Amino acid sequence: MAEPSPAPGVAEAVLPDPGRVRPGVELLLVLGVSLGQSAIYSVLSIIEKLTRNVPLNQQTTTINSSVVPDRPWLDLAYQVAAIVLPLVPALLALYLLQRTGDRRAIGFDLGRPRFDLGWGFALAAGIGVPGLAFYLAARALGFNTSVSPANLSENWWTVPVLVGLAAMNAVLEEVVMIGFWFTRARQLAWPVWIVVASSALVRGSYHLYQGFGGFVGNIVMGLVFGLVYLRVKRVGPLVVTHFLIDLVAFVGYSLAAPYLGWLN
Rank of each mutant, 00 (worst) to 15 (best):
R99Q: 09
V159D: 07
I245M: 15
A82F: 15
F182Q: 12
V14R: 04
T183E: 01
N57V: 14
S146V: 08
S146K: 05
P16T: 03
A124E: 15
Y206S: 01
M168V: 00
M168K: 02
A81P: 07
G226I: 02
Y41V: 12
L96T: 04
V196W: 11
V176A: 13
A93T: 01
Y206K: 00
V84C: 11
G120R: 00
A138Y: 01
G36E: 09
L74I: 07
Q210Y: 14
Q79W: 07
V175E: 08
D109S: 15
F115V: 05
L136S: 06
A13P: 06
A137M: 13
M221A: 13
L110Q: 08
S42C: 04
D102N: 09
S205F: 05
V240Y: 13
N53D: 06
P16F: 01
G120N: 00
T158E: 11
K233R: 15
L110S: 07
H242G: 04
L260Q: 13
G101Y: 04
A257E: 08
D116G: 14
V192D: 12
E26I: 00
Q59P: 07
V14F: 02
F108S: 03
S148Y: 11
R234E: 00
Y78A: 12
R71I: 09
G126L: 13
G204R: 00
R139H: 07
L91V: 05
L132T: 09
A93I: 02
A166L: 01
P69C: 05
S254V: 09
H207E: 03
A257M: 07
P8A: 11
I83S: 10
I178H: 09
G111Y: 01
S148V: 14
L230W: 07
A197V: 14
V129T: 06
I106V: 10
N218S: 14
W157K: 02
V159P: 01
L123Y: 12
A11P: 09
V239Y: 04
A105D: 02
I40W: 09
I127E: 10
W73T: 03
T100A: 04
P6T: 01
P4W: 03
P55S: 04
D70Y: 10
H242W: 14
W193Q: 12
E3N: 08
V175S: 02
F243V: 13
R22K: 09
I219L: 13
N57P: 11
P149N: 01
G126A: 11
P23D: 03
G126N: 06
S146G: 09
N218P: 02
L94Q: 03
S42H: 01
R234L: 05
V54R: 08
G32V: 03
G204D: 08
I47G: 08
A11F: 12
A133Q: 08
A167E: 11
L91A: 15
I47Q: 06
L136K: 07
A150I: 08
